[in-house]
Amino acid sequence: MYSISQLKRGISSPTLFCRELNRLYHRRLNRRPYNTRGVDVFAEDWDTLIILDACRYDMFERLAELEGRLESRISRGSATVEFLLANFDGRELLETVYVTSNPQLYRNRHRIDTELHAIIEVWSDTGWDERYGTVLPETVADAAIDAAESYPNKRHVVHFMQPHYPFLTDETTFDKGHLEDTGNEEGNVWNRLMESDLDVDAETIQTHYEDNLRSVLPAVERLLDTLDGKTVVTSDHGNMLGERARPVPVREWGHPRGLYTPELVTVPWLVVEGKARREITAAEGERELSEVEEQTVNERLRQLGYAE
């Protein structure tokens, strides 16, 4: 169940040990692989599903001023891999095009058995921004608009990276370690906060996180103005910002897998009816996942704050 390195970390860190206890509680002693209370996103009615990675419902409700009917849903995962496994795995989705800035589907391509009509990996080549170590919102929007023109009779899933870490600001230094390969995979902001190894207050972290959400909203609005059909804006999971988890009341940061707190699984569900609905047809996939060097995939996941 756990690797030797994970067991050593848990023994040496009381906070990580408490996290594992909470994870066992939420996953019913690992009897369920994901949050079975969550929504099956592909069973819902939409032509375009816009995913804002790690976007909390309460933050979206407060900051987003997009036209539409705002509801909430419960996600099947508290991390992207869980979300993908719970919604994509074992499914033939030949009517769907996936435009993604997140490398996790590629990284887990041998675990997630799915067949999509096309996958557009914005993160894999020129879409990656070396300055910030992520994919910027306008880059994803451009790719989504191109995909809509190339595949007019398909459902589209558009996966933005923001508000997910890293923070898109030049004003801070505490969060820029992801731009350098230090060899320390545990050095991202969330793990350092969890270990009380970062002297930054929760209000500052929340401010930068909210700014990340603000950075993606204009790109989302552009898509809502451009794409036809019915669009839903949602998230794969939320993010903890120092709130206490349960049942062990340890302060949590980030979005660890298998913790189904309200902050992590309550996500926005903004319904924008649009004009004429898209006529959706299924067809055999046009190409497989592109070949990307494993070192590149690992480096980009590291810069995004992922640590195994």
Rank of each mutant, 00 (worst) to 15 (best):
H159L: 01
I205Q: 09
E185D: 07
T204W: 03
L224I: 13
T182P: 05
D170T: 08
G187H: 12
V220N: 10
L198C: 03
T226I: 03
V233D: 05
H178M: 02
T226M: 01
K176P: 03
E195C: 01
L193C: 01
F174Y: 14
T231R: 11
V189W: 04
L193K: 09
K154P: 00
L217R: 08
E180S: 07
R222E: 15
L241I: 08
V233W: 03
E171P: 02
G238L: 08
F174H: 01
D181S: 09
N239D: 13
D197Q: 11
D228R: 14
D201Q: 00
G229R: 12
V200Q: 02
H208C: 05
R192S: 00
V216D: 11
L224C: 07
N191M: 02
P166F: 08
P166D: 01
E203D: 14
R214S: 14
T204I: 07
K154A: 08
S215I: 07
Y209A: 05
V200N: 04
S196Y: 03
D170H: 14
L198R: 04
L217C: 06
E221G: 05
N188D: 07
T226L: 01
K176D: 01
A202E: 14
M240K: 02
D211N: 15
L198W: 02
V233N: 05
Y209H: 14
T207M: 11
I205D: 10
T234C: 02
G229C: 04
M161C: 10
N191A: 00
L198G: 02
V157A: 07
D181V: 00
G238K: 11
Q162K: 15
E203I: 05
D211Y: 09
R222H: 12
V157P: 04
L217G: 03
A202I: 12
H208I: 12
E221H: 05
Q206G: 06
G177M: 11
N212L: 07
F160E: 10
V157N: 06
Y209W: 14
T172D: 08
P163D: 14
V158I: 15
P166Q: 05
T172E: 12
F167K: 07
V232W: 09
S215E: 13
H237G: 02
H159F: 15
V220M: 10
E210D: 15
P152S: 01
G177A: 09
V220Y: 08
D225I: 04
S215T: 13
T172S: 14
D225P: 05
H159I: 02
P218I: 12
P218E: 12
D181K: 10
N153C: 06
L223S: 03
Q206E: 15
K230V: 05
D170E: 15
N212M: 07
E171V: 06
T207C: 08
L193Y: 02
T182R: 07
D201L: 01
Q162P: 01
E203F: 02
H164P: 10
